[in-house]
């Protein structure tokens, strides 16, 4: 050990001028291997550049053209974007996203907070089991989740069967076939699938809040609920903003669920931007419009992430 340490210290003294604070030397950080390093980075960077960056660039340029995927493309300027923001179906899909945000983001976060609080800071007996179960939907194939729920909502599925058994025939519906109910019905699936993730995120965050804060609050005579408001919630600021970003962008990008269950129907009552993108790109090719939808979705995701992070940082 000793023989290893000495040359390292000597080397450190020689290369880094003494600055205040800790010496910032990590694993072999030196300028000697920069070009070898670039050689290691090159394959990944090239493939990523080709698949992601180049395509991103082309998405933006496609979005200014009108193209059916076969014949020659024509330049149309920002027409695809004006179409998006004037077409009732396209614009409506953003409205649907707003509804989905309630179910994909707001409800899971509330339920996640509640279950995290109930699991307790000291991980009561059985906490591991509950975490295992509630996190489960995160690992189930989205297509399978969609199929299960399509069955649950079907006219002779378990929801309607139990309503009939309870004598509530008036409440029996074709849930996914109803213009007003289909979208919230899809939303519920998102709530079901997402709240366990929020819970796990919050339990990890709660465990990191220093005990002294809780003790101080207790000394001030704060009850469990007050402690939750005064200590837990502010302590979870970072986790809350992450949960919001991920769930809101998930709502913006909903595809699998809609495509398997309703194809955007009945009518266009459950159409999402991603489903419209798929239709425009591959079913009835308007490639420029599809690209514009992709760009809009990406920009909105980015804006949501920046906005939420900004707000959460300003508050702290």
């Amino acid at each position: 050990m000793v023989t290893e340490v000495t040359p390292r210290l000597a080397a450190e003294r020689a290369t880094t001028p003494t600055r205040r604070g800790r010496p910032r030397r990590r694993v072999g950080v030196s300028r000697r291997y920069r070009w070898v390093g670039l050689a290691f980075v090159a394959p990944g960077l090239l493939l990523y550049g080709f698949v992601v960056l180049f395509s991103l660039f082309r998405s933006v340029s496609y979005s200014f053209y009108k193209w059916d995927g076969i014949t020659k493309a024509t330049w149309v300027g920002v027409q695809n974007y004006t179409t998006f923001f004037t077409d009732p179906v396209l614009l409506g899909s953003l409205g649907h996203v707003l509804v989905l945000v309630v179910f994909f983001a707001v409800l899971p976060i509330l339920l996640g907070l509640m279950s995290a609080a109930m699991l307790g800071r000291r991980q009561r007996p059985g906490a591991g089991f509950f975490r295992w179960v509630l996190f489960l939907p995160q690992v189930i194939t989205s297509v399978v989740i969609a199929i299960i729920w399509k069955r649950i909502y079907s006219p002779n599925g378990p929801i309607n069967a139990s309503l009939r058994a309870a004598g509530l025939d008036r409440l029996v519906h074709n849930w996914l076939g109803d213009f007003n109910l289909a979208l919230p019905a899809l939303g519920v699936i998102g709530t079901w699938a997402g709240f366990g993730f929020c819970m796990v995120l919050f339990t990890a965050g709660v465990a990191a809040i220093p005990n002294e804060l809780y003790e101080a609050a207790e000394m001030d005579g704060a009850g469990a609920f007050r402690r939750f408001l005064a200590v837990t919630l502010p302590g979870l600021r970072a986790q809350l903003s992450v949960a919001l970003v991920l769930t809101v962008t998930a709502a913006l990008r909903t595809f699998d669920l809609v495509w398997i269950t309703t194809h955007g129907g009945p009518g266009t009552s459950t159409m999402t931007p991603a489903a419209l993108l798929y239709k425009a790109a591959f079913q009835n090719p308007q490639v420029g419009l599809a690209s514009a939808i992709g760009v809009i979705v990406a920009v909105l995701c980015l804006a949501v992430a920046l906005l939420i992070t900004r707000v959460s940082e300003r508050g702290s």
């Binding site: 395509s55 490639v287 599809a290 995701c301």
Partner: peptide, 16 residues
């Protein structure tokens, strides 16, 4: 790349 959603690249990627 972690912030770029699949939707933003999939169309040109397909035609490419």
């Amino acid at each position: 790349g972690m912030m770029v959603s699949t939707e933003a690249v999939i169309v040109p990627l397909y035609y490419q």
